[in-house]
């Protein structure tokens, strides 16, 4: 979990300049993201963690913070492991 959060933070940091991103910072509210960000984030998550983001995952709350993304990954990998 800690490792996943670090990898997410490293990826997100490139969009946040010198701002030190915290695990509970709302990345959408911060206003740092542009129109291509959503696709870049999804591609990152899918490639980095070998999961597929589906329609049903697309609740913005799943992507709002580093912690939220980590929790989504935890749920998805649990589902994959159980199947």
């Amino acid at each position: 979990m800690k490792d996943a959060k670090d990898r997410i933070k490293t990826f997100l940091s490139q969009f946040f300049g010198n701002h030190e991103l915290q695990e509970d910072d709302d990345i959408f509210a911060a206003g740092f993201v542009n129109s291509m960000f959503a696709m870049q984030l999804i591609l990152f998550i899918e490639k980095e963690f070998q999961v597929t983001i589906e329609n049903e995952d697309l609740d913005l709350d799943n992507f709002r913070t580093i912690n939220a993304i980590a929790h989504l990954l935890e749920r998805k990998t649990t589902v994959i492991a159980a199947t």
Binding site: F11, M36, M39, Q40, L41, L43, F44, E46, K47
Partner: peptide, 12 residues
Amino acid sequence: ENRDPKSIMETS
């Protein structure tokens, strides 16, 4: 092809 997030900006 590698589903790399950098592909978005490189395409632009």
